[in-house]
């Protein structure tokens, strides 16, 4: 059974078509990654999936219920973390969770038990009575996630949940997503972080300019671009980009103190680099090849669309 089923979604803002004929299905129990560059239509799609925005045409079914015809029943099955959306700063973490629990109709006793459990898990139990406005961004995001999962939703939709978080908060968010999934929730995750999508998702969908350009498993998406591999090299002194003009080199990008060279022929590039180092009397401090990455697939899909 599909937990989320969107069919031919279209949304226009004046003359601009933000989302055009987007159709997607998310299977029950799956972690589904929704990727795209800025302005691609990710948040607009997410808002239509969560019933916040009404599409100009198309439909969204959550657990088989049309969210725009029966919004209350459909939303009862969902937990949502909107992009940049905060919880109420004047309320404490505990009060925010009570509000959220009441919205989902949880009885007081069950609510209190779950709030204690969830605040402990999120590392916020000691600060549960403090107003959320005094919290750091990471702590606020933890409260936000706690509000979305308090009722153990069947479907959890998260819009950029780890954006701008410190390492500890990011790990906690990712662990929570995994735990919710293991407990049976279907996860729909929009993210800029390709590595995160690669690590978490069973299916990745890439949207660009309002249209779906690819949908597959991260591994299969990577293989679609297996003609593109990369060589990472670092030298004992600084070099300029003009040294990396040769047959087989598609492009070169500085990457910290290294250069990443994209190629369809790693053998030729390795020989060229070794020859270059000898000719110019430059020492090679590290040299490594790597296969096609999901990031490369993402770049190619969103550049050529």
């Amino acid at each position: 059974m599909n937990s989320i089923e969107a069919t031919h979604l279209v949304k226009k803002f004046g003359p601009v078509t933000a989302v055009s004929e987007v159709s997607l299905t998310v299977r029950e129990g799956e972690i589904f990654g929704f990727l795209g560059p800025n302005g691609a239509g990710k948040t607009t799609t997410m808002r239509m999936l969560t019933g916040v925005l009404t599409p100009d045409s198309g439909s969204v079914l959550i657990g088989g219920i049309d969210i725009h015809r029966h919004p209350l029943d459909a939303k009862m099955q969902m937990g949502v973390i909107p992009e940049n959306s905060t919880v109420y700063g004047d309320l404490s973490a505990e009060q925010n969770l009570h509000l959220s629990g009441k919205m989902y109709g949880m009885p007081r006793g069950e609510r209190e038990k779950r709030i204690d459990e969830i605040l402990s898990h999120m590392g916020l139990f000691e600060k549960r009575h403090l107003p959320v406005r005094t919290f750091s961004k990471g702590m606020k995001q933890r409260v936000s996630i706690a509000c979305a999962i308090i009722h153990r939703p069947r479907v959890l939709l998260l819009d950029e949940p780890t954006s701008g978080l410190d390492v500890q908060s990011r790990r906690l968010v990712i662990d929570t997503i995994r735990e919710m999934n293991e407990a049976g929730s279907t996860i729909f995750l929009t993210t800029h972080n390709i590595e995160e999508a690669n690590m978490l998702c069973q299916t990745v969908c890439i949207i660009n300019k309002g249209k779906i350009v690819a949908k597959d498993s991260p591994e299969r998406l990577r293989k679609m671009f297996d003609t593109t591999q990369s060589v990472e090299v670092s030298f004992d002194r600084a070099v300029t980009r003009d040294l990396f003009v040769a047959d087989g080199i598609l492009r070169a990008e500085p990457c910290g103190d290294k250069w990443r060279i994209y190629t369809d022929n790693p053998d030729r590039v390795l020989k060229y680099l070794v020859g270059l180092a000898g000719r110019e009397s430059i020492g090679i401090t590290s040299l490594a090849t790597s296969g096609p990455s999901l990031e490369e697939a993402f770049v190619q899909l969103t550049e050529c669309a």
Binding site: T50, L72, K75, S85, T86, V87, M103
Partner: peptide, 12 residues
């Protein structure tokens, strides 16, 4: 305060 979208995403 960007709480409106969250409010709309609740069962209301």
């Amino acid at each position: 305060d960007k709480t409106y979208e969250r409010l709309l995403s609740y069962p209301v």
